[in-house]
């Protein structure tokens, strides 16, 4: 019986810490995603010369500077 109480208590502690950490992680991930999106959109534009939102093709820069 005592072992049962100990197992339940430890599982309860794991549950509380797991759910709390998950909540914090979700919030952090949201802000990280918000700050990541403009950079990744810009990067994909620079790599493909194509607007990532409307798929409009820009003139490619052939051999010039910049």
């Amino acid at each position: 019986m005592l072992y049962g109480y100990i197992i339940i208590l430890s599982l309860l502690l794991i549950l509380i810490s797991y759910s709390y950490g998950r909540k914090i992680g979700n919030k952090e991930g949201y802000y990280k995603g918000i700050s990541e999106i403009p950079l990744s959109l810009k990067l994909s534009y620079l790599q493909t010369n194509e607007c990532p939102i409307c798929n409009k093709q820009q003139q490619s820069n052939k051999g010039g500077k910049g």
């Binding site: 019986m1 049962g4 109480y5 339940i8 599982l11 549950l15 797991y18 759910s19 998950r22």
Partner: peptide, 20 residues
């Protein structure tokens, strides 16, 4: 709604309690 890990942990807790 609550996530997979939480549900599995609650299942384990209730399983131990009902076995007790």
């Amino acid at each position: 709604r609550f996530g997979k890990g939480e549900v599995i942990l609650v299942i384990l807790i209730f399983l131990v309690a009902s076995i007790m």
